[in-house]
Structure formats: C-alpha cells, structure tokens
Simulated scan of single mutants.
Amino acid sequence: MSTIITRRTLLAGAAATSALPLIGGAQAQAPLGVGFVYVGPIGDHGYTWTHDQGRLALEKEYGAKIKTSFIENVAEGPDAARAIRQLAQAGNQIIFATSFGFMNPTIQVAKQFPKIKFEHATGYMRAENVATYNARFYEGRAVLGTIAGHMSKSGQAGYVASFPIPEVVMGINAFHLAAMKVNPNFKTKVIWASTWYDPAKEADAAKALIDQGADMITQHTDSAAPLQAAEQRGVFAFGQASDMSAFAPKAHLTAIVDDWSGYYIKRVKEVMDGTWKTGDVWHGLKEGMVKMAPYNAAMTPAARAAADEVQKGIIAGTLHPFTGELKDQKGTLRLKAGETASDEMLSKMDWYVDGVQA
C-alpha cells in the first residue's frame, strides 16, 4: 500500500494530514508507516526514481505489513521541513529524507518527534533518532572516467553538475583522476546547472560543453536530457543513477546505478523488530549499493577491460580512486605518494584536483 502526497497537498497543510491514517493507539495492528521525501519527481529516471524503486521494493518485500507514502518535488529549504513534518504527523514511524539539502530540516523535525526514526541520505548530521546513509558514487565515477580516458578522441569531457556540495565535487574529481590515469593530458570541463532536475537547463549545459570540444558528457543531474543532447550531437555520454540507455542508445556507454533497495528493506525490518539504531552507512560497489549499467557495444575492448579492472580493484580493496600523490588546482599537496583519502576528507571535499576546469 502506498500514498502519494503532491506538493499542492503539502502546501494545503492540515487538510491533507487528516486524510492519512494514524498509526498506534487504537490501531495497534495497523501497518508500519514508512515515509519518503524526494527532491525531484519520481519520473526523473535518475536519483529520485532509484529511491522510489527502493520504496517499491519495500512494498514487495513486506506487503500489507507496511504502508508507504511519499512527497515528491520538494525544494531544499522550508518546504522540506513542512514535508517531513507532515509525514511525521501522518503517523509514519520511519521517514527517509533523500537529498543533501534536507539535512537541517530533518534534524529540526526529528527534535519535535523523538519517537519517530529518521534517515537522511548523503548528509552527516545525526541524532539519537536520526541516522545517515550514502552511496560511494565516486567509485562508479572512477569507472566512468576510466572509460572516458580510453574512448575520448578529443581528450576532453564535459561534466553537467548540480550544486558544489562534497558529494558532487568528489565525483568530478574521481572521474577526472581516473581519466588522467589513461590520458595524462585529459581535461574535464564543468558547467554548474544549479539544479538537480531541469531538463532544459541540463540539455543547454551539455550542448555548451560539446560546443567547447567535449566528446564525452557525464552528469550529476537527474534527467536524461544531457544524454539526449549527446545523442543528437553524435558524442558519447554516461547515465545518472540508473540505466538510461533507452533514452540515448548510441550515446549511452554505461551508467552508475543506485540500488537503495537492500538498505531500505534492512532498516524497515529493524524498526519492525525494535532493533533500529542511529548510525552512518556509506556503501559502494562492494556492497552493491552502487552498480554499473551494461556496457554499450561501441566500447572498445581496451575500455571494457580497463573498466572491469577498476571495478575489481575497488571491490577487492586494492584500488582507491583517491590515491596520492595528489595536488589540487592551486598546486597544494593534498595526498602524499601512496596515501589514500580518508572518508573524512572525502565527506568535506571542497577543492578540485589539478586539471579540472570548474
């Protein structure tokens, strides 16, 4: 069972809240309420879509034992606090807030509802009833960069980015470092779209990057528009968060695939069992939270082999995408030779590696 709460409903406030079933008290046998707050539309086929696939996996796993609801297209700011609070007032016992900009609103609302469990994706602020979780997207970006280094004829990639938060910055750096291992003269140009989902802006950014010489387009925005622009211009590209090959079968070389299903199933079970505890999870290729979409037949054997080796190395723990010697754009030494970046360094990354044009 699931409930869709639109943004219009959110702004309506109490009227919408009263329409949802309460859990607890006289309805002790009622299903466990599980709420989700999404920054984009569930039809973006990117980041929000993959979180919603995780919600659907929950419904398949637990059936009538749970009731899920979600609010999509929630702006990062006051709207987020209203959305999270509405889900709490509606009787949900665990709420997943799925965007970095929901961090402070999640903490704020969690203080008001200490008996409800909250989970915040990609953030770092926790409390007794607030846990954090994230995927090591940068591992997948290293695979993409390796492919780009092998496949690019111009030695230049274009990167359509959303916002300069650590998650996005580390992805840009991981992509560029991997490409440079193949081609030391590789260049990565970044255009900030200042949005998570705006197909028109994303397409315009991709076209501008292609006009500047990029023959590889990658993105940390959520629509398929950059891919479609690449398809129209006859250059290669990578999908975001899911296999987007249906939108650009010639351009789409592969994609990072986010798989939140296992995490959601585990955490909801812990709520039902009474074993849920706060904490922080950051999983990647090894755990299957990050996967790679099938390779395009256009990929060269060398690119395929190199991409597979990077994946195997990361999974085995013998390869870390951020290994020194490593300098930033200003020439400052960030990692000594052989040194690898700590999770703390990655989670606070606000600098670009040498060669990134951003």
Rank of each mutant, 00 (worst) to 15 (best):
T3D: 15
T3N: 07
I4H: 11
I5Y: 02
R7P: 05
R7Y: 15
T9S: 14
L10R: 01
L11Y: 08
T17V: 15
T17R: 01
S18I: 12
A19V: 09
P21E: 14
L22F: 05
Q27S: 14
A28I: 12
A28K: 06
L32E: 12
L32Y: 04
V34E: 06
F36G: 07
F36A: 01
Y38G: 02
G40W: 06
G43L: 03
D44N: 02
G46I: 10
T48G: 08
T50Y: 03
G54P: 12
A57Q: 09
A57G: 07
E59W: 14
E61A: 11
G63R: 02
K65N: 07
T68W: 00
S69H: 05
F70I: 04
E72K: 10
N73M: 06
P78D: 13
A83R: 06
R85V: 15
A90T: 05
T98E: 04
S99M: 07
F100Y: 08
N104R: 11
K111V: 08
Q112M: 13
F113R: 04
K117S: 12
H120D: 08
G123K: 01
Y124S: 14
M125W: 15
N134D: 13
R136A: 14
F137S: 10
R141K: 10
L144H: 05
A148H: 02
H150R: 10
G155C: 10
G155F: 04
G158V: 12
E167L: 14
M170N: 11
M170G: 05
I172N: 01
A174C: 09
F175M: 07
T188A: 06
K189P: 04
A193E: 09
A193R: 02
W196G: 07
W196L: 08
D198E: 12
A200I: 12
K207G: 04
A208T: 03
L209D: 11
G213S: 03
Q219H: 03
T221F: 13
A224N: 02
P226K: 01
P226N: 04
A229S: 03
E231Q: 07
R233K: 00
V235Y: 06
G239A: 14
A241E: 03
D243A: 10
A246D: 10
A248Y: 00
A248F: 01
K250M: 01
A251R: 02
A251K: 00
L253H: 01
V257C: 09
D258C: 01
W260F: 14
S261G: 12
S261V: 10
G262L: 14
Y263A: 13
Y264D: 10
K269L: 08
K269G: 10
E270M: 06
V271M: 07
V271Y: 07
V271A: 05
G279F: 04
D280M: 09
D280A: 09
H283G: 05
G288H: 00
M289E: 02
M289Q: 05
K291F: 08
K291T: 04
K291A: 08
N296Q: 01
A297M: 13
M299S: 04
P301H: 07
A302Q: 00
A306R: 00
D308L: 15
Q311C: 13
K312R: 15
I315G: 06
G331R: 03
T332M: 01
L333Y: 01
L333S: 13
L335Q: 13
G338T: 04
D343M: 08
E344F: 05
E344K: 09
M345D: 13
M349F: 11
W351V: 15
Q357L: 08
A358P: 00
